[in-house]
Design a protein around this nucleic acid. Structure first.
Length: 422
RNA sequence: GGAGAGGUGGCUGAGUGGCUCAAAGCGCCCGUUUGCUAAAUGGGUAUACCCCAAAAGGGUAUCGAGGGUUCGAAUCCCUUCCUCUCCGCCA
């Protein structure tokens, strides 16, 4: 959520930011709710103050004395009034909170203008497809042995669509990618965490999955737990409602988890094969940083993700996402898209975002500044990387004429050989 | 899952209806004092919100969470979450 003071004091900045994001929010209603809430609070607190004072006087009177009895009757009325005012504070507060939750984060000034996906700006490209894509490239689902290596049919039998088995060398290739991503992140200074795969309502709310994106998560109803759609949720919530010491910042962490997404209503021809799954593996990078450094930390986060693709020798481009296309809680966002030479398409494999204090405010993650005051940190996260599409690009770009796939050198320490075939 | 015991400030821990809008100790910060280290001693030491143009100042809330009883709740009642001990089950 946005800083209430910012809405109150710099309404024009907020208005402009929201307009750039192409959101429609009734800010006047938010301001009115804020006004109502403050009024209710003031009324309640003065009544409560009177009650506290009178109660202290009563404590000094002998119980059952005439003075005590007289006071008692008087206090009953005040008590009823306090209860009533307390209720109206609760109502006003909830209305205000709900209104505040409808306000998106405002985009950073460096975010390009634009309405939709087509307005995103290509910030950079790396790798020449002519050189890095094999002439034998095919869409990965057209590779002769693909259904043996990634078994969708058995997945359907055992679970349902979008839950494939990786079999044999393919399973080892997936594990190699996980190891590679984790090792690289470790060398870049990220501390590894192995996180819970189910989270409670409070966690899903803090990172913004609830209430709006409820339908995107699998829900274990008996225990009211949600299967994580990304490691961002448990990893970010690690510090929920905590105050970090100044010298702890920046905190950089990396977590590998499977991710579970219902992807309701988003299936079609363009999401064949590994392009979109209900369960997939992802290594996630998360940072908690001092507010002054969040823009430069975003750049280094993006660099950390890019390095992986470079070492894998996969051509990619970096998109600077336009104001109209960045998400509700985002301040600034880069997407990394890998070139899948068989499909001849760009596939998003990483999204690196800064949330400024928007998420930290919602999750209650703060740090103690030089003066000893508690302030909200800035949070950032980015995939490093989402695996199935990277896998797709490796399979397609490195497909040889003999039907085998050449394995990138950086994966061989874990994979154990130089090619994949069935 | 069953039985029992608990959840109090950064930590330890007192506190069974008003004398606690949380004692004391530890830690931390600031000062005083004595060659240094250290000790002694005084003071300070949470978070959020509200009032106030700001500062100064004042107020309210928070004793796991949520309800309730009461003029008044850390304290009594209910619900719920969590921790510990024992039992059961179990990769």
């Amino acid at each position: 959520m946005l800083d209430p003071k910012l809405i109150r004091e710099q309404i024009d900045t907020v208005r402009k930011g929201i307009a750039r994001k192409k959101f429609t929010v009734d800010l006047d209603a938010v301001l009115a709710a804020d006004e109502r809430r403050r009024h209710a609070v003031t009324e309640f607190e003065s009544a409560r103050s009177a009650q506290n004072g009178a109660n202290q006087e009563m404590a000094k009177l002998p119980k059952g004395s005439p003075e005590f009895q007289a006071k008692l009757a008087e206090m009953k009325a005040l008590s009823a009034k306090v209860k009533e005012l307390e209720k109206s504070v609760a109502d006003a507060d909830e209305a205000w909170r709900t209104a505040c939750l409808s306000v998106p984060n405002i985009p950073d000034v460096s975010v390009p203008d634009g309405r939709a996906e087509t307005d995103n700006v290509v910030a950079s490209t790396w790798g020449d497809p002519e050189k890095l894509v094999s002439p034998a490239a095919k869409a990965h689902w057209d590779i002769a042995w693909f259904s043996k290596a990634v078994d969708f049919e058995r997945g359907v039998k055992v679970t349902g669509a979008g839950f494939p088995f990786y079999v044999g060398d393919m399973a080892r290739l997936v594990r190699s990618l996980i190891q590679f991503c984790l090792q690289e992140a470790g060398q870049a200074g990220y501390e590894e965490v192995h996180a819970p795969l189910l989270v409670n309502t409070a966690s899903a709310t803090a990172t913004g999955q609830l209430p709006d994106k409820e339908g995107q998560m699998y829900h274990a109803q008996t225990d009211d737990l949600y299967m994580i759609p990304t490691a961002e949720v448990p990893v970010t919530n690690f510090f929920r409602d905590e105050i970090l010491p100044l010298d702890a910042l920046p905190v950089k962490r990396v977590g590998y988890t499977p991710c579970f997404r219902r992807e309701a209503g988003s299936w079609g021809a363009h999401v064949r094969g590994l392009n979109r799954l209900h369960q997939f593996d992802k290594v996630e990078l998360v940072k908690w940083v001092h507010p002054e450094t969040s823009l430069s930390e975003l750049e280094s986060l993006r660099t950390d993700a890019e390095r992986l693709l470079q070492k894998l020798n996969l051509p990619y481009r970096v998109l600077s996402i336009c104001a109209g296309d960045i998400g509700f809680p985002h301040s600034k966002q880069y997407d990394l898209e890998v070139w899948a030479g068989g499909q001849k398409r760009w596939l998003e494999v990483s999204s690196c975002s800064s949330f400024t204090d928007f998420q930290a405010r919602r999750a209650g993650i703060r740090f103690r500044d030089k003066e000893g005051k508690a302030n909200f940190v800035h949070t950032l996260n980015g995939s490093g990387l989402g695996l199935p599409r990277v896998l797709a690009a490796i399979l397609e770009n490195n497909l040889q004429a003999d039907g085998s796939v050449r394995i990138p050198e950086v994966l061989r320490p874990w994979y154990g050989k130089d090619s994949l075939n069935y």
